[in-house]
């Protein structure tokens, strides 16, 4: 049977493959190559070895964006997952209007990043106005603004995944533990948490990669202001390409490092949490 199907490669696989080559494979390979060259368009590239990478690390904006992104990712990943898990615990209890609440909490996730950014710009500036400052007065406002925005957007999404995980915990096991007199804390730590480990893996993966790669929300909320202090990595790379002429090589080197960081974080995180899944 495999042989019969194999003959139909041109129909079943070729269209996707061609689009994939144009949109991903060629740009990816070219991107790696260009990061070692000096260029303004793809055709005038001149090999310069590692200097783009050296330049990128000498760029204060890049180093600053790296720290900002790292701090932002840590704070949002922890807050989103803790709050989403708590909400999921509440919404798996018997309570009136459970589905309506689930619907409401999930909704912000569907709104696009640009629109979200402007919604929260209004909200946060409205509050800060009472103290006669704005979102862009200091980097700390932009930082916490982004954290709040990200929480609002992703808590519902993660909550839905945690709810699915908690609902998979066998009722008998919970009842048996209760009959044995286990406290709520023990039930949570010894029964629920190990069994929802797969959900934790997924939620950590989604929140880490969404936070680390954040762009639209960053552009709309602060656009990096004041003076690029709140620009995250993705925005810094964009700025290097499109608002500094002659820095395309540097931008591409930053982009390659960005890719390597994302890939490393994802591999390490999945490795650690998957191992814990198996143990439990």
């Amino acid at each position: 049977m495999q042989k019969m199907i194999k003959k139909y490669f041109a129909l079943f696989a070729l269209p996707t493959l061609l689009a994939f080559i144009v949109a991903f494979v060629v740009p990816f390979v070219l991107g790696i190559y260009l990061s070692f060259t000096e260029f303004t368009t793809v055709t005038d590239a001149k090999w310069i070895g590692l200097s783009n990478y050296v330049k990128a690390f000498q760029d204060q904006d890049f180093v600053n964006a790296l720290w900002f992104t790292a701090k932002f990712t840590i704070v949002s990943v922890i807050s989103i997952n803790v709050l989403a898990f708590l909400l999921a615990l509440l919404l798996t209890q018997k309570v009136l209007g459970r589905n309506v609440f689930r619907t409401v909490f999930f909704m912000p996730n569907l709104i696009g990043g640009i629109v979200l950014g402007y919604i929260w710009q209004l909200m946060i500036n409205g509050v800060l106005y009472q103290f006669e400052v704005t979102l862009t007065s200091s980097a700390k406002y932009g930082f916490w603004g982004l954290v709040i925005l990200m929480n609002w957007q992703l808590i519902g999404y993660m909550m839905v995944i945690y709810i699915a995980g908690i609902q998979n915990v066998p009722k008998e096991q919970l009842e048996a533990a209760k009959i044995d007199g286990a406290s709520n804390g023990i039930i949570l730590r010894k029964i629920i948490l190990p069994l929802v480990m797969p959900s934790i893996t997924i939620c950590l993966f989604l929140t880490i990669s969404n936070s680390f790669k954040l762009f639209d929300q960053n552009l709309a909320l602060t656009a990096g202001a004041p003076s690029k202090q709140t620009a995250m990595l993705a925005l810094d790379i964009f700025n290097t390409f499109y608002s500094k002429a002659g820095f395309e090589g540097g931008g591409q080197a930053k982009a390659v490092m960005f890719f390597v960081m994302v890939a490393l974080i994802v591999v390490v995180q999945l490795g650690i949490t998957r191992r814990r899944e198996i143990e439990s």
Binding site: P27, L30, F215
Partner: peptide, 30 residues
Amino acid sequence: PFQMVMFTMTQTANVVGLDNPVGLLVIYLG
């Protein structure tokens, strides 16, 4: 991440004539 291929994808789309709404569909598929 998108930023890795952002610049080169835009250039490639230009070269092969996909820098229009219909071409965008191909890019999204890919």
